[in-house]
């Protein structure tokens, strides 16, 4: 699905990633943990092609293609999805209009006809129910006046509608209360089908009680310094990141 080899990346002249390697096969859930400033969010931004983030060395292969050669929207249409840590508002553009345009763009890319408005509306209503958002959120402006939890659930709803192959969740748990966390986790778990892969970037072990990963990686100093199974997350919870400092150097 995704292969990252020796990735170096910078943001405004600051090198953040310094030789990162990761290999993700279909159906796997990888958690990426690490202290603040370790480059966790940078990885998601580089993978999704955010302007201002530049890969300076290394190779990224997504579904057999050179990801860095693909434009931002092409990556999205090919099935790469980023759930934002801080979803931005687009005033006046209804969620429904935005979602339909996104889904239509993806369908067009896949050579499919756009969904009729009626079919889309049915699908969107059903999906909003799955993330416990009232249907009137579909009529409101994109993230306009949404609470933090509503924004995150809106992200998961978009993910469900777009049915991506690789989902990157960038600290989706930050700012969520326990109920919202449960809703988000249920949403993600319902999408695990043995083919779809996930990268779950998080600061806390808590989320991984709900979304149980196949692998846990610790990112520090721009590299993955330790990998393991879900027990690694518990170890980190108990010991903190300090004990890994030695491995960074």
């Amino acid at each position: 699905m995704l292969s990252v080899k020796g990735l170096h990346a910078k943001v405004e002249e600051n090198e953040i990633l310094k030789g990162l390697d990761i290999e993700i096969r279909p159906g796997e859930v990888h958690a990426i943990m690490g202290p603040n400033g370790s480059g966790k969010s940078t990885l998601g931004n580089i993978l999704s092609g955010r302007p201002g983030y530049e890969a300076t060395a290394g190779k990224i292969t997504f579904k057999g293609r050179d990801l860095l050669e693909m434009g931002t929207e092409e990556r999205a249409r090919e099935g790469l999805f980023l759930a934002f840590q801080y979803p931005v508002e687009i005033p006046g553009v209804s969620n429904m209009e935005f979602l339909k345009a996104s889904v239509d763009a993806k369908r067009k890319h896949a050579g499919q006809e756009p969904l009729s408005s009626v079919d889309f509306m049915k699908l969107a209503r059903a999906t909003s129910k799955r993330v416990d958002l009232e249907a009137n959120f579909l009529k409101r402006g994109v993230n306009e006046g949404f609470s933090g939890g509503e924004k995150k659930r809106n992200e998961i709803m978009q993910m469900m509608l777009l049915e991506p192959e690789l989902c990157i969740l960038d600290e989706t748990d930050s700012g969520l209360d326990i109920d919202a966390l449960q809703v988000v986790a249920d949403g993600v778990n319902s999408m695990r089908d043995g083919h779809r892969s996930f990268i779950v970037v998080t600061h806390y072990q808590r989320l991984l009680d709900y979304i149980v990963p196949d692998y846990v990686h610790v990112l520090a100093g721009g590299r993955i310094v330790k990998s393991g199974d879900k027990s690694l997350a518990l170890e980190l919870e108990a010991k903190g990141y300090g004990w890994l400092e030695g491995e960074v150097a």
Binding site: G49, G71, E73, A76, P87, A101
Partner: peptide, 9 residues
Amino acid sequence: FLCQQRGLD
């Protein structure tokens, strides 16, 4: 970026 990440040009 949000729009483009959702596949819009």
